[in-house]
Write a protein that binds this DNA or RNA. Structure first.
Lengths: 210, 210, 210, 210
DNA sequence: GATGAATGAGGGTTCATTCAT
DNA sequence: TATGAATGAACCCTCATTCAT
């Protein structure tokens, strides 16, 4: 019972902090603001987290965990490379719409320079997907599709992930939303997704091209 | 003579500030830190700039001006869409390597949420390129553009810009550098560029499609 | 218990601030100086007061409240005009000796030019006494005394208050103290008061003069 | 010629500084503000005056000199005490209306606590008038002085000066102006002066008392 | 000598972190 | 154990004063 309460409280704190960090960045966020958002005292935050950095990391880890779990799910469904890519895109869109503050939080970390955060987290966050996506494109041949002649699977995996990240940001972060609006006006999001899939399909050549 | 000194000093301040803002963000950067970097006193910064925000905007405007001038140059050379895209990529790479702190600065403002900066600058920074790239892809076959059947030029322009932005960030920002490393190890940058051009050529200007 | 502590501390802060403001004026006073005087940290002052102005106003309001309460008491005692004037003088002297820093604070705001303080507070501080004193002299006839022929009650009330203010300042403020010393040497304060009362008595003519 | 220019400049600086100090006080006034008001560079101010305090003293001395010269003039005219008092009041009113900023400056110094200013200047400013006014009231019956029985000339001189000072302040300083308005509304200044003279006449020089 | 840009100490204010209750 | 008031370092910004030109 007590444990449950604590877990709920922890989740609430994490959520509030993720929101605050996502909106204001590490230095712009305030602990007392986070305490207010989560209706707890400043003290309990310091009970659970050593300091502001520690809380930031916890939020990040939490967001990463959620994002990865979403992406992992997208892999499990099928062997078909195209289908997997489609699943990844679709799952990512859903995640971005359900948890924009987690993506903003994630975007925050990409801005860290000269802090231990950048390198440390790049590995933790991207290490897994880098391997997954590269494998995906490496194995594509077995599934009947192949990359264009001369294409380097890891590079194409990298580009694929780049397009994914930008899609996530464009659905979650103020600046990127506005930027997308400049390109696309009030386009239906489904249409954008279909356009992206159209593009991604081209990653793979039909057999007669090879 | 006096004027020259002032201009040099101004440039130095802008440069230092751009570096500091790029590394630490608006709220994380400190005026006294910037003063130290540029070997001037705090007071002189306030002689030239009303306040921290004003300096931030000046850095941003300066970076934008530089980036746009680089990209504009890339357009002027030829009518061939493929060639233009290649020029844009190449110019961007050069810019990113010469002025990484400007790209970091630029990346910083993409993190602004709930601030007037985000919307205000998205328009200023992206408005022009959005039109340019969309026009580029709207151009008829005679310029070598052959989007896939069903492709929407603005969307593809958006994806093109997404890939460019990620390239710039990957060459300039700590986190993205590390992330790129995870995908590509110590790959030669030239190779990466050639892979990107391969992709762009195939997706945006390949000739074999109707 | 906790509340008591807070009240004591608040009173201490107000007192210290009143002293500092009275000595150095609004712009000359420093929050950190006030914090030191009251043996609290700078932060706690900002817990209770929004900013320096807010603290200044609080000190002023507190001083005004105290002064007015002292003067009101002096009115309640009797209907006899001469007695009331005597009470006002005596009460003012006691107040000035007990709370010189409040009078100095009050004197400070009389120095405010071009600030919202001047007009705003003149009304708040003087409005009440202006009416009280004018009424007092207006009603004097009913109480058997009357002003000299041609005397305008409000003007004489104004002069009365002028003499009072100068008395308060002369007992509390460095400059005025020194000035009084130049006129009076080390005269007993009681003697001065008696002289003032002698003068004030002359506000009223004996019946055969009228 | 050069000397003349310098003298004009000095006078201009003094005037501007007197205005600024009178409005904002010693700590509130800014040297660069004074420089701007007098259309000289900051440098020349420091050429003539060691520092801010020095300039403040110079302004004060100048104002004192002017005020004293005005009051001295009022003395020279006649032997009749009543006439002299009238002259002093009238001259003071004229001075206050012509040079309100000098009176404000003078008022500023009365606010100095714990600074060497207070004692130092009280003596310089008030020493002379204290003697003059006391002498005036000490004068024998033949000059029309008839203080009430038991009246102490120095004390009454002090009260007389108090009334004068308050009149000066009431004509020059924002706060006191507003306060006077509360008592007197938009009364003609001439009427107020006549009321003061009525009072002075009655209290200090009335003839009907033994 | 005159200028006004540059300096940097100092003051207002915020907020991460601590700790008495 | 939970609270949130208190602390005080650090930051933005101003301005008295200096000094190179």
């Amino acid at each position: 019972m007590l444990k449950k309460l604590t877990e709920e409280k922890l989740a609430l704190i994490l959520d509030s902090a993720t929101g605050e960090f996502g909106e204001k960045g590490l230095s712009g966020a305030s602990i007392s603001g986070i305490a207010k958002r989560s209706h707890v005292s400043v003290g309990v935050i310091y009970k659970y987290y050593k300091d502001k950095d520690d809380l930031f990391r916890a939020c990040l880890n939490n967001s990463i965990k959620n994002l990865h779990s979403v992406l992992s799910d997208a892999f499990g469904q099928t062997d078909d490379t195209g289908m997997i890519m489609r699943s990844i895109v679709t799952a990512g869109v859903k995640y971005a719409k359900d948890h924009p503050q987690e993506i903003r939080m994630y975007h925050e970390i990409t801005a860290a320079e000269n802090s231990s955060f950048a390198k440390e987290y790049a590995k933790e966050i991207e290490g897994e997907t880098a391997v997954l996506y590269t494998d995906l494109l490496n194995k594509s041949k077995e599934h009947g599709v192949r990359l264009p002649k001369g294409a380097h699977p890891a590079s194409f995996a990298f580009f694929f992930d780049n397009l994914l990240m930008m899609l996530h940001f464009s659905l979650s972060c103020e600046y990127y939303k506005e930027r997308m609006h400049l390109y696309l006006g009030n386009m239906e999001e489904d249409f954008l997704v279909s356009q992206l899939l159209l593009l991604l399909n081209r990653f793979f050549v039909s057999s007669e091209e090879a």
